[in-house]
Amino acid sequence: MSDMKIMVGVKRVIDYNVRVQVKSDGSGVVTDGVKMSINPFDEIALEEALRLKEAGKAAEVIAVSVGPSQAQEQLRTALAMGADRGILVTTAEQPQPLAVAKIFAALYAKEQPGLVILGKQAIDDDAGQVPQMLAGLLDVAQATNASKVELEGESARVTREIDTGIEVIEIRLPAVLSVDLRLNEPRYVKLPDIMKAKKKPIETIDAQALGVERLTFLRVIKTSTPPARQGGHKVGSVEELVQELKQRGFV
């Protein structure tokens, strides 16, 4: 399967170092003038795709971003890391997971990749739904929360970190993978590659052209800041601690 294509999702999100601020009208969070980056889980997905390509197990890595035109920046970073080309699917408003899954399904039909590798969640909305929805829509195998991926011919052996421990499953390709934090450590981007990325192609498609009209299915009622942490106090001894916990009904 060395002529296999891999499609990777690259979502533009608020950088993980930024302290997120809720808009005063509660309609969302402030993104103006805020540093944006590739969703860290997507970076891991891309890294895995690149390693598979470098190991001769794939021929092409296609980075896909769904979102505003500024997501070009994140696609450029993906190209600098090593993706061969980018596809930007523009949408009129922030699409929700099902719409994103439908967009990926439409691109899948066009590109026929052997693997779609996605982050297990995006750090902005933490929905964690696209990979599973996509596998459902395509009716292909899925392996979620991957912490190790080994390709063998027409199948993949995937190690997953689950609540009860480590699970190893084997799935047939084509398949959808969602990746966990410990899968790999993304590479540092080389400066000359940033310059060369300028010349790699990014195709822009509107979601409507892919037949995806409806972008939202849920209405967000309100966004608010979690309550501020109440200051605690120091206890003098273990006995005092136990007593306090009892008093508050925790033990």
Binding site: E73, R76, T77, A80, Y188, V189, K190, L191, I194, M195, K198
Partner: peptide, 18 residues
Amino acid sequence: DGQEQALVEAVARFAIGQ
């Protein structure tokens, strides 16, 4: 411009990480 920003960020990332 976007490319210069990307170069600075790549170096900053290396400096903070390594």
